[in-house]
Simulated assay, not measured.
Amino acid sequence: MNSATEYQVSTDFSRILLCIDSTTPSARLAGFARQLATEKTQVRIVGVLENARAVFPLGPLAGFNLSAAHAQLLKAVKDGCVAAHECLTASGASVDSEIIDLVKDGGDAAHALAHEAQKWQADLMVLGSRHHRGLLRWVERAASAPVLKIASCAILVVPEQCERDWSGRPQRILFAVDGSPASLEALRSGSKLAAAGALFRAIYVVDRAARVTDFVPLAVLQDAFVEEGKVALANAREAFAPPRDAEGVMLDGALTETDLTSDDVPHAILREATRWQADLLVMGTHGRRGVARWMLGSVSGRVAELTQMPLLLVRKNDSR
């Protein structure tokens, strides 16, 4: 199933919160953010200094000097903020920075970042990550709840092992849709990152793999997913309906499938993103499918764990 329509690229994100911690490859992360910034953009760099006891929980058992570790973490965060600031200043954007010290202020990084995004009214939060380390753990699975529940902005996750850098804004953007309001919100938000003339592709994954937690016959589920997918893609096309005088970019839509065994929706999404050579993957965060979500975690959370390309996570803004 393929379809095409046109859509006018919408306005830029104007307030970008760039999040740095002691593990973040800050210069590379800032390079991604720089491609999204213009002279009208405001960027706030937030360095998160975590408690050394949380970063090195076994340190005291090995006679670890926590004061020295704290100083080392602080230096890494400060150096990262300086490198990011130098990179972003070249874009012409207005840039400032601050450090959140969780040792002095208490709390955790998830709530601190969400609070900062809300207070500063950010419309995009950018996180660098090393898988299962750094700030990514605050958007993975159950840990995503504090950030995504409190923060009202989109979140761009840039993995350290990202296969290629952006030489400009992304030219090929893949949207994984599931028919939820969050998917439509993701379509709107993801379009803000596109280069002029970018290619957009929306996919819906038909889950053909059996789950012990599904209580409906597999054939019935597959038929239901196909019909749901057709509706989801139709809604995606409608969400991208252009203004009368718009010069737009192409939006392609298609159903894709998981394998019958040893497969799942997150892996199917990432296979399609790789096959299509996407520069950016975009997903809503509140989609729901099957009782299995309680055992396996959210699809977007699992994709965040596995992705090797930039991932934009968007929650539904209830004010819209």
Rank of each mutant, 00 (worst) to 15 (best):
L124E: 03
L124C: 06
M125S: 08
M125Y: 04
V126Y: 01
V126W: 00
V126E: 01
V126G: 02
L127C: 11
L127M: 13
G128H: 01
G128C: 00
G128T: 01
G128E: 00
S129W: 00
S129I: 02
S129A: 13
S129D: 00
R130L: 03
R130C: 01
R130P: 02
R130N: 06
R130W: 03
R130K: 09
H131C: 11
H131M: 11
H131F: 09
H131I: 08
H132M: 09
H132G: 08
H132K: 15
H132F: 11
H132D: 15
H132A: 13
R133H: 14
R133C: 01
G134C: 00
G134F: 00
L135D: 01
L135W: 02
L135K: 00
L135E: 00
L135R: 00
L135H: 01
L135M: 02
L135V: 01
L136V: 15
L136D: 12
L136T: 11
R137N: 12
R137E: 12
R137I: 12
R137Q: 10
W138V: 05
W138D: 07
W138P: 01
W138C: 07
V139T: 15
V139Q: 11
V139F: 15
V139E: 10
E140P: 02
E140Q: 08
E140V: 08
E140T: 09
E140C: 07
E140H: 10
E140R: 08
R141F: 08
R141L: 15
R141T: 09
R141N: 12
R141Y: 14
R141D: 15
A142C: 05
A142F: 08
A143G: 12
A143T: 06
A143F: 07
A143P: 09
A143Q: 15
A143C: 09
A143V: 08
A143I: 06
S144T: 08
S144I: 07
S144N: 09
S144Q: 14
A145F: 14
A145W: 13
A145T: 13
A145N: 08
A145K: 11
A145I: 10
A145M: 13
P146I: 10
P146K: 14
P146G: 09
P146L: 11
P146H: 10
P146W: 07
V147K: 01
V147P: 04
V147T: 05
L148P: 05
L148N: 06
L148R: 13
L148G: 09
K149Y: 03
K149N: 07
K149M: 05
K149E: 07
K149V: 04
I150L: 11
I150Y: 10
I150E: 13
I150R: 10
I150A: 15
A151L: 08
A151I: 02
S152K: 15
S152F: 04
S152D: 12
S152G: 14
C153E: 04
C153F: 02
A154M: 10
A154W: 04
A154N: 10
A154F: 09
I155T: 13
I155H: 09
I155S: 12
I155D: 07
L156A: 05
L156C: 06
L156T: 05
L156F: 06
L156V: 05
V157S: 12
V157G: 02
V158G: 03
V158S: 06
V158I: 12
V158H: 04
P159N: 05
P159T: 06
P159M: 03
E160P: 03
E160G: 03
E160C: 01
E160L: 06
Q161H: 11
Q161S: 12
Q161W: 04
Q161R: 11
Q161P: 04
C162S: 15
C162A: 14
C162M: 10
